[in-house]
Design a protein around this nucleic acid. Structure first.
Lengths: 240, 240
DNA sequence: TGCCCTCAACCTGTATGACATGTTTTCTTG
DNA sequence: CAAGAAAACATGTCATACAGGTTGAGGGCA
């Protein structure tokens, strides 16, 4: 009953590669490396860990796939800046293998974005406020071109997350963007009339205004309304 | 200004390995594979993609590191069940490289757990309710042994997330557990007196009772109070 | 017939060596 | 001293080899 799994990442897996992955992450920790700092070369690591280059490479490559480190030909690997990295892949994997439903993703987004929008209203810089408003404007301006609206919609939500000044929120929201891209059009299509589509876009403008006004309460309310409508649209379209 | 990065995971990276990773994930999608389903062997994939086994292996290994697939000696790789996988590593990486602060993690946890606790109050099965209560009881029973209390504390929160019946919440909360383990003791130590420590444990019991009573409002309030106290404890300890 | 055991076929795990290509450092030369 | 060439170093990819785990086919035995 007690959860003793995954005390540390990957510790459970046997094999030299997992050990190497741990050794490398531990190296980063112990050496106190930050983004951009260089790691030892593969040859170096081969000697340190007394394993073949094959193993070291698979370890490096794994960390690279998770975007914990950056690799490129000719130069040594370096510690990566924070990136959605593997997170989006995990989410996408969950959705495509039907272990996660779109509704569940939306519930999480709603929960988080009601917070990010409130934080954004409190913390946004003027530049961030302008950016958010700009995306809302671009949505309105391109209301006849769904895919452009979608991209601005996604950018809108990501910009709000950024304005919350908490990178973890930003990380999670961005990780969901891929899933959003796959379902957005469906929601759009259920808004049969142009009026409905405009209304949805105006919902974004409402949110933007509340953020600019620095009113977290109102911003959260608009965000909640927005999500409720989006979920309803998906439900109407028969998305479980 | 427009976000055109990371439309699809990894698409930006050049190189055969990234291409192979994409090919494999696409294979899973196209073939409609679910957890447990087998993937082609490395030799097979080598032929399909016309690349060396080295490349295929690095791709497989990367997916394995993200826990999107399971690998083990002798048997072919299979599609993995949903797992925190890389998510915890991304978070840990962010924290250890000081790109994410502990406070930011706690804000996210608070946001999410106020929702999971409410959902748990509404949706929990009797077994789940019993499990949650049991962890609270175990915390009280072992109040003199911090590390045991911590493990039950973490298990308590994870159980609530599970009882929300939304795997995405569960995923995210579990991903944070590693970070929690590294800071939990600090918060505990700031609770100088045994009374304070007991009070903290009783906070968990309050949450459990509200879940059992099926009162989402109350459960959320207790959870909020719990987090506020935890954050205060960390602040008192000088954790930025 | 039915069960169990063995072994062959297949699979992944790891190591080694080789070579192409990209990057950095060093040294030579003008 | 500066510019450019070459050497040293790094990663990217391939081929091969073999150890060890897994599975299923086939044969032997009851």
């Amino acid at each position: 009953m007690v959860a003793n799994r995954s005390m540390m990442p990957d510790e459970t897996n046997p094999g030299l590669v997992s050990a190497a992955i741990q050794a490398i992450t531990q190296y980063i920790r112990v050496e106190g490396l930050g983004p951009g700092d260089l790691l030892p070369s593969e040859a170096d690591m081969t000697r340190r860990l007394s394993v073949s280059r094959t193993v070291v490479r698979e370890a490096f490559r794994s960390l690279s796939a998770m975007r914990l480190i950056d690799m490129s030909a000719g130069r040594r690997a370096s510690v990566a800046k924070l990136d959605i990295g593997a997170m989006s892949m995990v989410i996408e994997h969950g959705v495509t293998t039907e272990q996660i439903s779109v509704h569940q993703v939306y519930d999480v987004r709603r929960t988080i974005e009601m917070r990010t929008v409130a934080l954004a209203a409190l913390r946004r810089s003027d530049a961030e406020a302008a950016e958010i408003q700009e995306y809302a404007r671009l949505m309105r301006e391109n209301y006849h071109a769904p895919e452009i609206v979608m991209e601005h919609d996604i950018a809108f939500h990501e910009a709000i997350a950024r304005a919350s000044h908490n990178p973890v929120f930003s990380l999670i929201i961005t990780a969901f963007s891929g899933v959003t891209r796959r379902t957005w059009v469906i929601g759009w299509r259920t808004r049969a009339s142009v009026e409905d589509q405009i209304k949805m876009i105006e919902g974004h403008a409402d949110i933007a205004r509340a953020i600019i006004a620095g009113n977290p309460q109102l911003a959260a309310e608009h965000m909640a309304a927005h999500f409720d409508k989006s979920v309803k649209a998906l439900t109407d379209a028969g998305i479980a």
